[in-house]
Design a binder for these strands. Sequence first.
DNA 1: TATATACCCGACTAAAATAGTCAAGTTTTT
DNA 2: AAAAACTTGACTATTTTAGTCGGGTATATA
Lengths: 140, 140
Amino acid sequence: MKLNTKSRYAVMALADMAVFSSDDAVSLRDISLRQGISLLYLEQIFLKLKKNNIVKSVRGINGGYILVKSPKELKILDILLALDQKVKTIGCKKNSKKSCNGKSTKCITHNFWDELDIHINSFFESKKLSDLLKNREARI
Amino acid sequence: MKLNTKSRYAVMALADMAVFSSDDAVSLRDISLRQGISLLYLEQIFLKLKKNNIVKSVRGINGGYILVKSPKELKILDILLALDQKVKTIGCKKNSKKSCNGKSTKCITHNFWDELDIHINSFFESKKLSDLLKNREARI
DNA sequence: TATATACCCGACTAAAATAGTCAAGTTTTT
DNA sequence: AAAAACTTGACTATTTTAGTCGGGTATATA
């Protein structure tokens, strides 16, 4: 049970932007160098972040990306959703279109998975990007 | 971010055992029929549950499996651990042997993933098998 | 206005994980 | 003896993941 790298790198990259924020756009090249994430991969990730209005882009020679919201307002959940990272443990059986059929023995675990989803989602909902920056060491 | 089927089926199967508990062992054949899970697959799952002392087996013609602990004492976490289902979101980068190297910018997200793990693990730690049975409908 | 920088975007692929099956047992009750 | 049920390792097809590739487009600055 783990988050995929796209989600993790997205959070990492946005945290990087928050740390190195200025009025200027932050280029993927800089993030790539600082965080050790492939530039090509970052492009793919930021495409989704842009589509989901987490960042906006500035094209051209001094271009890059800018956070749409302040780190204090940006929920981690929004980042994960932008990367299609649904927190879904899946109820009952794998392929059931309807998550439950009528037979209730098959649904013994159903409510439990729902609870788990709520538990995890509320964590991501409560955490803001700025929360990640709090405990880090002062020095770069 | 989801639990694999082995883990989910394990919880489902054990919940089934708890519901249909008696002094006798419960056969995998019965669980398979009731829960619609492949018998062969259940065998693989129960092998691990047995190795990890979640169930004990009774061989022979009226054999099957018996819960080692009562559902009230059996933590969901123990079940997941038996299936190798570590709740590890992975810190920092994928392949780093040491989860952090000295450069602290790379560890911006590190504490956050740790917090997430703790959050999820404490959920599984607090929930017992008996908790799954509470809300289910009275009728089979 | 040339050009380098940086975003844009779909398609592709290798590798790993997952879900599940198969074969060939052993044990125990009736 | 025979049938039910557990035991175990190996095998495989499918799916997912992680990441690359190629060929764009936009724009600031020299």
